[in-house]
Design a protein around this nucleic acid. Structure first.
Lengths: 93, 93
DNA sequence: CGGGCTTACGGTGTGCGTAAATATC
DNA sequence: GATATTTACGCACACCGTAAGCCCG
């Protein structure tokens, strides 16, 4: 269960395609494919339904997607918090 | 901003020492030291106050700690969700 | 001396990119 | 032929463990 895997899932859902997710994540398609595949392999569930025109989350994928969104969002906030701390830190003489 | 770094921060705060965190995380002390150091280096803030008898989170460390706890907790829930999906998935003929 | 943190060094594993293959329209 | 996904291969980076050093009681 790695972050980049959850991020991949989130972006795939957001764009409706692995290609689009790859663009957003600034990585190549195979990287995203492997990320979700590892995730599916890890939990033993098909997270995406592969269609010729793209992909759609399965019910299980959608369920995990909600969790993934929260994790990514909170991680984002953590990064923001660290930046804020960086701003107020210099005053801690 | 990696998960294991946040996890390290959480466990350090929980145990009050890098040594204790290492034990909980089933890794060695240097690994934990480097994890928090990388985190500090990344956000440019001293997260821990090093004392001879152990370490104590700084104000900035405490702030990030709250976020870190949330991230770790949510990630935990994500893993649990995947297990649940695994349980209900086989019925999706 | 003992306990705890840090630094340096080497190995191993993982994630990424490139290249090639398959399927649909 | 174009688009989208998947698989295979090789590489670079990051994490971890071991070993050695430093500080304080």
């Amino acid at each position: 269960m790695k972050i980049h895997q959850l991020r991949a899932l989130v972006e795939i859902a957001a764009t409706g395609s692995i290609n689009g997710a790859a663009r957003r994540l600034h990585v190549t398609q195979p990287a995203v494919t492997k990320a979700v595949r590892d995730l599916e392999d890890e939990c033993g569930v098909r997270l995406l339904e592969r269609n010729p025109w793209g992909v759609v989350p399965t019910a299980e994928g959608a369920a995990l997607l909600q969790r993934a969104r929260t994790v990514v969002r909170e991680l984002e906030r953590a990064g923001k918090t660290s930046r804020t701390s960086r701003a107020i830190a210099p005053a801690s003489s």
